[in-house]
Every structure is written in C-alpha cells, then in structure tokens.
Design a protein around this nucleic acid. Structure first.
Lengths: 183, 183
DNA sequence: GGCCTTTATGCAACTAGTTGCAAAACAACG
DNA sequence: CGTTGTTTTGCAACTAGTTGCATAAAGGCC
C-alpha cells in the first residue's frame, strides 16, 4: 500500500507528468521504492478518481499528450496520515541469502560467480550514493528538510556498505572451502 | 519465484509435513523468506504435481491427516540449477524510508514514536540472532555446511545491527529538529 | 508526403503474496 | 455419545507487482 504515497510525495516535491514521475522513480525515490511506468499511470488514475490529485488544467487529456498532476489538500492530508500511522516492519525477502542456504545443502557450484557480480553492483551503487551525497549535502546544508533527506541517503549508503563488506567476507570464506562441496 | 526453492531447501534439510514447514518458516528460513501456511500448501501441491517432491508413502491422503513430503532427485536438481543461476538483485522496497522522505515534506508529527518502536523490534531480533549464533555455531563448528549457514546468520546479525544504529541516529536527529516542522 | 524514431500514455493478462474462511480428523470432557 | 476445541489441510477471493503490447502525437529525414 505504499506506491500511492510514494507518488504523492514525489508530486508534492514537484508536480509532474507520468513520464517525469517514471524518470524520478528510476533515480531518487526508486532507490527504496521502485515502480514501472505502467504501475505509475494506473495509480495516477486511481489517485485522481479519489480526489487526491488533479491534472493541471492547461492541456486537454489525449493519448500521447503530456498531462501533469498536482496534489490536492485531500492528498496531502492522506499522506500525512499515512506517514504518522504505525506500521509493522515486513519481514525481509532476500533470494541471495536463500540461495546461500540452499548451497549449504546442494553445493556451492556456480554461486561464487554471481556473488562476485553482486559485489560489483553494490560497489557501483555505493559509489553513486556517495557522489549524490557530495553533490546534494555539502556541509552547512542542514535545514530540517535537508537533514531528513540526508538521513534517508545515509541509510542507502550504509546498506550498500554492509553488502559490499558481507559479500567480500563471503567470497573469502568460499576461497577456503574444499572444491565443489555438496556439503 | 523463490518460494518453491525455499521449500525444497527446507525439505532437503528434513522431510516434513505442511504444518511442520510452516513452523520452520516462522523460525530459521522465514528470517529471510517468510511464507504463510496457505502459500506453503499451495506450493507443495504444485511441487508434487511437477514431480519435484512426493508424499511419504506411509499414510493415506485425507484432509486433516498428516502428510509428509520428501524431495525427489528432480527436485534436488532443480534446486541446484536455481542456486547456480545468475539472478539480478531486486531493488529494495522500504516503507519506513519512504515515510521518512514523505515526512520531509508533510512534517514529522507522529513518526518518531514508530521509529522508536521499530528500534525496539530490531534490537529484539538482533538479540535473538545472537542467541542462535551462540547456540548453533560454537567455535570449531566449521564444516563447509556450517560455515555457509553461519554466513547467512551473520548477514542477519549485521543487518539488524545496521538498523539499530541507523534508527538510533535518526532519533538523535529528530531530537534536534524544531518542533512539528512541515519542513 | 511517407517513413522512422522518440516521447508519452495506457490496457490486459499474468504471477506472487495476503486474507478470510472452512472442513476433516482427532483428542478430551462430562 | 455428543459437544467442544485443537491440529492439519486446504480453497477462494483479493491485492500488489510484472510483463507484454498497443496507441497516439511529434519531430527529423529523404
């Protein structure tokens, strides 16, 4: 139930069309809530029907024609309500850890290469985040809004740091394992 | 596409009935791949139809009557194939980080209490994991199988450690924020 | 003008996970 | 023996997310 709220947040930051939202979901917001353009258009329709957002009046609604949305007071209220409401943390789902656990039973053949690949991907993501941090949060930029955003980015950085460290450690362990164990 | 493989792994570790599997998903395996009993029964049906597992011959199949499954060679082969196959990491979805980002726009009212609650939950989970580590991985228990399982547990411990630290830091920042900011 | 690519919007079908409920076997209680 | 509660299995409907494809406008190009 988070996608509509992700969209409301994005639209409050800046009114946008479906495609612009899609692009922003590929960057900042998508780092912790990804969505495809199909999902976004579907949800924009629902949010408009519910009276949470409206199309900016300027242009007529036709296919292939840009249509921008802005958040209405009802939408902002709903977002505030959702943000403040208590929510239980959902349990993780991590296929990589699952594969490792399977490997403990059926053997580690073939897994190492993919661990190495994941390590590279996480390193790259970490480098991206750190570049964003330098660009968007120079020392002194500490209005409440900035502090909170920075906090979110720090979570991303620390998570990627964790994964690179853990994967590095895992690969070291693999190196010490006897070859091809159906352990 | 991971649930069937989670079940195969669990059944290889020990043949079980649906209910036993459900219980084990609430403990060890569920720490990184949770599932309800309804999902598990449905999936057991599919896996049996595909010839990956079979019901242990002992008892007749009737409703309300215990039925245990074991993995067939085809199931083991499928699990090995899946474990070795390259898979892209799926992007995270974290509602809490999303809420924080929303809070940067609509204000942090009400969020702090839930952050505190999450911190408690993560601390408890961390304590659980550490107890499991002490119990199941004493020094010297380092056969390949144990090392890999330990690696998975370490990921859980380190992730919970990250969250407790990050939430603690976030709460410190909140304390410094001016009251009730629609920042 | 006709053709190709890019931009922008969107529908439909499918897959995976969640929620609500129920039915069959069994055990215990009086 | 009937009632009540627990264990075990399972169906059905719903929600959320994914995948594949379609349609329309706009701009470049020859």
């Amino acid at each position: 139930m988070s996608l509509p709220h992700a969209i409301l947040t994005a639209l409050l930051e800046k009114p946008s069309s479906g495609l612009e939202l899609t692009r922003r979901f590929d960057r900042s917001i998508g780092y912790f809530w990804s969505a495809t353009h199909q999902q976004i258009y579907r949800e924009l329709g629902k949010l408009e029907a519910e009276g949470h957002i409206r199309a900016l009046p300027s242009e007529q609604p036709a296919r292939g024609q840009k249509k921008s949305y802005e958040v209405l007071p009802a939408g902002r209220a709903e977002l505030a309500r959702w943000t403040a409401a208590s929510q239980d943390p959902k349990p993780h789902r991590d296929p990589l850890l699952l594969r490792l656990r399977a490997a403990a039973v059926v053997g580690t053949d073939g897994l190492e290469a993919d661990l190495r690949r994941h390590l590279e991907l996480h390193k790259r993501q970490l480098a991206d985040y750190e570049k964003i941090e330098q660009r968007d949060f120079p020392p002194g930029k500490d209005a409440p809004h900035d502090r909170i955003q920075h906090l979110v980015l720090r979570a991303g950085i620390d998570l990627e740091t964790f994964w690179t460290q853990w994967l590095t450690h895992a690969l070291e362990e693999f190196a010490e394992l006897p070859e091809s164990g159906t352990a």
